[in-house]
Design a binder for these strands. Structure first.
Lengths: 130, 130
DNA sequence: AAAAAATTAATAATCATTCCTGTTTTTTAT
DNA sequence: ATAAAAAACAGGAATGATTATTAATTTTTT
């Protein structure tokens, strides 16, 4: 895969993800950055999101609304998805190391990592419903 | 959404999923069933997988290899994905109820359910590597 | 058994993502 | 600092999983 060179497009994508607490998808990232980089191309966004994910500098979130979302926070954490509004929040909750150990005996293999997704209704949506 | 009528196509899809321990994707389901139902159409497979998922009779697994996979086992369990061969195993491991409770205080909302994915290398792949 | 409703097959359309090509930027080596 | 080599880019075409459309068939209701 060789080493990654510098590019201002890649830097901008990483900066954007690290500065946001939400978890934008490729299209949102593209439209946002296009304002300041008018001839950024969508392919560049997709290619760099893939590269950064492979290098572990960002995390890809799947299974939310059908399209991939991206997270610039790489410290271990889970996600809470509101099934009402689709919002994805970080959940900083550390059951982490123990979870792999507990599951190990039930697995036909060696666990290296895990992802946890919580589904529910966020407080904002709960207010609206009542 | 009205009520679901009977259709032998839908029944065949559900039977197939409940009889298999792996987690086939739509294409595999389509090709398998086509052997005994030669004019089954792919659209029918996709439409019924979507319906059955919405009704909670099957579970959709995302984020494995880019395409959705389906699981006929609805009792609560997790999944182990081998990053080497792509195999997806069930993990019947019950930290379940407690996990929602533990995470609740870290969430801005009400947790209703969760999904856990474990990633690693299966025993078969471990052998091959060594 | 006929009418109404639901489902299907076949195929066209969609849309997120990847691939391709010629150009530009970044790095390396002089 | 400059030229050659490597990596990355923009723009657009291609891919591929999934969804939508429509006329025909099957299932349910009466």
């Amino acid at each position: 895969m060789s080493t990654l060179n510098y590019s201002k497009q890649r830097q901008a994508i990483l900066d954007l993800l690290q500065s946001r607490k939400d978890h934008p998808n490729a299209e949102v990232i593209y439209q946002t950055l296009r304002k300041s980089m008018p001839n950024l191309s969508a392919g560049t966004v997709y290619r760099n999101l893939k590269l950064l994910t492979e290098l572990g500098q960002i995390k890809k979130l799947t299974g939310l609304d059908g399209v991939d979302h991206f997270d610039g926070t790489i410290s271990p954490h889970s996600h809470f998805i509101c099934q009402c509004c689709g919002k994805v929040d970080d959940v900083f909750f550390e059951a982490d190391e123990s979870l792999n150990e507990k599951a190990a005996s039930h697995c036909d293999g060696e666990i290296q990592s895990h992802n946890v997704y919580f589904y529910g209704t966020c407080n904002e949506c709960l207010k609206t419903i009542k």
